[in-house]
Every structure is written in C-alpha cells, then in structure tokens.
Write a protein that binds this DNA or RNA. Structure first.
Lengths: 169, 169
DNA sequence: ATTATACGTCAACATGTCTGACATAAAATT
DNA sequence: AATTTTATGTCAGACATGTTGACGTATAAT
C-alpha cells in the first residue's frame, strides 16, 4: 500500500511531488553547505579563545565601519547582553575599537583595529576560497541563480534594505 | 591616497576585485538567508520546549528512517553526549522511536513516530513555503544554479556521499 | 577467550543565548 | 528648565547546546 502510494507520488504527471522533493533537497543542501562554510573559521577561532559569535561581530563591524551597537544588534538578532559580553572581549583584546559619535554622544561607533582587520582576513580567507572554488566550478550563470534564490529566501520585509547594504559599496 | 586605491580596485580592468566583491556579497547573502530560514522553526520549537538541536535530529531522522546513532552523529557533527540529551527527550516525548536492529543488536535504529511525523511537518512547513516562494520567484534556471553552487560549497571529500544521500529517494 | 564496536550515562565545564532589572549619559520634547 | 525618551552598559540568574573524560554493558568480530 505504502509502496504504491510512493511510486505514484513520483510520477512525472505529478509535478507537485517533484516540487516538494526539489525543495527538500534544497533545504538539505543549504544545511550541509552552511555547516561546512562556518566550520572553517570556527577552527581558527577556538584556538584564540573566541567563538562563532565573535566572528559574526568581527565580520559585520568590518563590513560596516562605524556601525553603532543598536544597528549591530538588529543584524545579529541577539540581545544587547549577549552582544555585550562578546564585544567587551573584542575591545579588551584590541580587535574592535569603540569611539563616541560626535553627532550623538550616546552612541558608540565600532570599527576594526588594525589587528582586527588582520584577524578578519585570516578568518574569512578559507571562506572566500571555498566560495571561489564553488563559483569557479559552477560558472557565472549558476552564481547568478544562486544569488537570486538566496535573495528570495530572505524575509521579504527586510530584503530591500539588506540588498542595499550588501551591494552598496 | 586610500580613495585612489579604492577607485582603482573597482576598475573593470581589475577582474580580481570584482570576484572578491562578488564573493563577499555571496557570503553575506548566505548569512542572511540562513538566518531567516532557521528562524521559522525556532519560534515554533521554543513553545514546545525544544530547541534547534531537536529540530535537526527530527529532520534527519525523518529523512533517514532507521538511521543508527553513529550515522546521525556523523551528520550532525556533535558528540554522542550532546545528542544523547536531545534524543532522550525526544524519545520520552514520543517523537522518536528507537528499536534494536535485528542485524546488529548493538545498534539502535531511529524513526519518527506518528507524532514525530506530524511535528516534522509543522516545523518544516514554513521553511518549505519560504523555499517555494524563492524558487518560484527565481525560476528553474536560477534554482539549478543555486543547487550547483551549494554543492560546490560542501567539503569536497564528503560531497559525493552527501549528494547520493540527498537525492537517493 | 579476547578485543573491538555501538551505545548509554555520569560529571564537570564553556559558550552563547535569554529575561529582567537597574544605572548613566545624552538627546528630544514639553 | 524639567521631563521623557533613547542608546548603551552591566549585574544576576537561567537555559540550551556544545565539549572532554571516564566508565559500563551488550554484542559482534577476531
């Protein structure tokens, strides 16, 4: 019974099953790709006594020099208490520099120090290499499709703002 | 000085910069897409007293009925002690069923119970909808490219095995 | 009979997250 | 000028998830 049902579902005349199956495969591919993608810097960080949280902060401060704390919290979607601990360590280790905004003296603007820039490069290098390889193997058209689908996976209400931020440089 | 350097780097005659930039954008897109993708089931799970770890177990047991513990550990890349805690809860709540393999009585084969199947559907539904929307908007060619690049991001030495597993059904 | 494997479990600890409460400085509003 | 709101920091306590290390048991393989 369940066998019959199974073969039936896979028939070419049932495009719904194909779509479902395709989607499931996409979800799994995304899991494995992301797992491997983040495993690279994780290894490096552990040796330095940092974790993935530190990497995310380093990355987004690097990408958004002079970002303030509230903005960073929005991107990372964590609480300020969580960020606080990580940020404190990074400031103590002189990876990140805080300065008071002249426009609004309540705000702390964050930038990478030189040491921070260096670390950022070290951390992202294996990720960039991984992407470079994948892009090279897949070709430019595939890359365009990759980006298009990723964009579509982002929450609709934030998509525009995120794309503007990413591609603004 | 740094301005000159900057504009210079972006010149069309410097394809290396374009590639770098493209890669960075890909890395960020992946971050945001993944962040939103996993946020859906997270909300549902917290209400039930489970976390992301439980979802991963539910997902992979659902996808690999009768998987044994060692196999599951390889996929999840966590220690058996970590898995043990989560698995215990899921078995107690009758989400996952364990039975002893007849071929090797040391092995515990894991399957979803009916209740587990239901929960799996509830959890993955928003993710599937998100993918369905993204796939629809991007079109079949983009989807092919998306998959191709994701495959390329997976560690080379495991890629073959993972692809076989994902697309075997 | 011995060794290796698959699994479970106990203990101790690290990290990253959370909620809630409170403090301070500065900006904005009345 | 006084009050309220905002941006940030911090303390305390909790929870989820991960780690190492050690040990036990049942079963399979040698």
């Amino acid at each position: 019974m369940s066998d019959i049902k199974f073969t039936d579902r896979r028939t070419a005349s049932n495009p719904l099953f194909l779509r479902d199956e395709e989607i499931r495969e996409g979800i799994e591919l995304l899991f494995y790709a992301y797992r491997d993608h983040v495993s690279d810097p994780d290894k490096i960080l552990r040796k330095k006594g940092f974790g993935r949280a530190h990497h995310r902060v380093i990355h987004f401060v690097g990408r958004n020099p002079n970002i303030n704390v509230a903005e960073l919290l929005k991107i990372l979607r964590i609480t300020k208490q969580s960020l606080g601990r990580v940020l404190k360590q990074l400031v103590e280790e002189e990876i990140i520099h805080q300065r008071i905004s002249t426009e609004d003296r309540r705000q702390r603007l964050l930038t990478l120090t030189e040491k921070g820039e260096e670390l950022e490069k070290i951390l992202s290098e294996p990720q960039r290499q991984r992407f470079a390889r994948a892009y090279r193997e897949a070709g430019p058209e595939a890359v365009a499709g990759f980006r298009k689908v990723l964009e579509g996976l982002i929450n609709e209400d934030e998509r525009r703002a995120i794309l503007d931020k990413i591609t603004r440089s």
